[in-house]
Design a binder for these strands. Structure first.
Lengths: 232, 232
DNA sequence: TATTTTACTTTTATAATTCAATTAAAACAA
DNA sequence: TTGTTTTAATTGAATTATAAAAGTAAAATA
């Protein structure tokens, strides 16, 4: 096969990396996992989880690889967000980065591994300044997460097996940074018929107790319309 | 500055390309511009407009460069769609491609240039088989275009200066591949107050004639809610 | 047994959407 | 002139969705 046109561009090959915005949900707060960078430039500053993409690897595989190394998990929910390619975005070199966001359960056994890597969970409000263009990456990931959350009920990957509607609503409050009306939220969610009510109640939040729910097995192409009119 | 960690990855640098899905609107049809490929592999087959990304160039700049070369236009509307990175997607080599879609007016003087490049407009229904994963790229671009079109009134870049509501509705019919109700569509569009009615009428389509409209100057952050409930 | 607390339900008003029917304007033909 | 035709443009009634608030329920506790 004639590869001449490809060979001509050898000198134009680029560094390609992935960056992951890792979301978790804990203590009624949407949180983000960030890292103290251990290489120059910007050593010691806060950064997203990143890594190089190898030659014979897709960017998604690379993202799964670095996430697995960090957390030990291999069934992480991943969604591609955007690709950033300004040649000056990284002072260390001209690096193209493909951004993903990941959803993980904070209560996982991953906790120890994460600590070893100098990583820390922050709420969105308390997030420190990140290196390079990573603040923009976080904004983009949030927008994408909001978009996703307004077309399907997110939470399978963020909530524990069983949870109350109030807890799910709180997650949505966090994602969209606004208060959803309890009555209307409940009505809407239940009308979608993706949740199944358990007989058990959570008695920790109120005298009356709140029923636990769990997700029904996922059905493909469940909805195609936005769930909430004013969510985005 | 210590670049050792970067230098270590020199041998992992990747070919990076852009591919453009070019949409146009002509004779009440949404069309797509595709090319007869003039290099191996897959020479002679139909393909999207692509090009290499240079070392000191962002992917968007590269997309604008190849679009300019093709059409002579430099105010094309561009939106990033997705990045494809499967190492086996291109039989010529392991190429990562960043996909954009572009909206251009077919009636432009670009027509001649386009012809010189062996390019041809096809309706979506009549699109031939494309090389590699380009059929998937087209689907992705359509989805993104639909998403965009359901959050703002698209058409500034596809319709001529003045147009009738019926023509705008037809464009939406094409994008979403369904029939919008004429009365409801008109009511909705006008309620958004982004169009201005001209005194002139288009008499070519009916006895009564239909008023021409034009877009008001664009205002930032115009909408944040989906325009159509059942569009996607 | 009354109080407190939060889950959960219901109500009501308002707004948006759909679908069908109607009206309007102008060209054209008898 | 007058009726017919064609498509634009408007209207209205029925339905559905949304927002906000008020009310009810259950169980622990004082």
């Amino acid at each position: 096969m004639n590869k001449s046109i490809y060979d001509q561009y050898q000198e134009n090959k680029r560094f390609v990396a992935v960056d992951c915005v890792i979301f978790g949900y804990e203590e009624e707060q949407l949180k983000l996992l960030v890292f103290e960078r251990d290489i120059e430039p910007a050593k010691g500053e806060w950064s997203l989880l990143g890594g190089w993409v190898n030659v014979n690897e897709s960017t998604e595989a690379a993202a799964r690889r670095v996430l697995h190394k960090l957390t030990g998990l291999d069934d992480v929910y991943l969604e591609q967000v955007h690709t950033f390619s300004d040649p000056n975005r990284d002072p260390g070199g001209s690096v193209i980065t493909v951004e993903y966001y990941a959803l993980i359960k904070i209560d996982d056994k991953a906790a120890n591994l994460i600590k070893d890597y100098g990583a820390k969970w922050f709420t969105i409000a308390a997030l420190p300044k990140l290196i390079f263009d990573h603040d923009i990456l976080v904004q983009k990931a949030l927008e994408k997460l909001r978009l996703r959350s307004s077309y399907e009920i997110i939470g399978r990957k963020l909530l524990p097996e069983k949870f109350t509607i109030t807890r799910l609503r709180n997650l949505y409050d966090q994602i969209f940074q606004r208060q959803f009306d309890p009555g209307n939220f409940r009505k809407k969610i239940l009308s979608l018929k993706v949740l199944e009510r358990l007989e058990e109640k959570d008695m920790s939040e109120s005298r009356k107790g709140a029923f636990y729910f769990k997700f029904k097995p996922k059905q493909e192409g469940e909805f195609s319309d936005p769930i909430f009119k004013r969510s985005i």
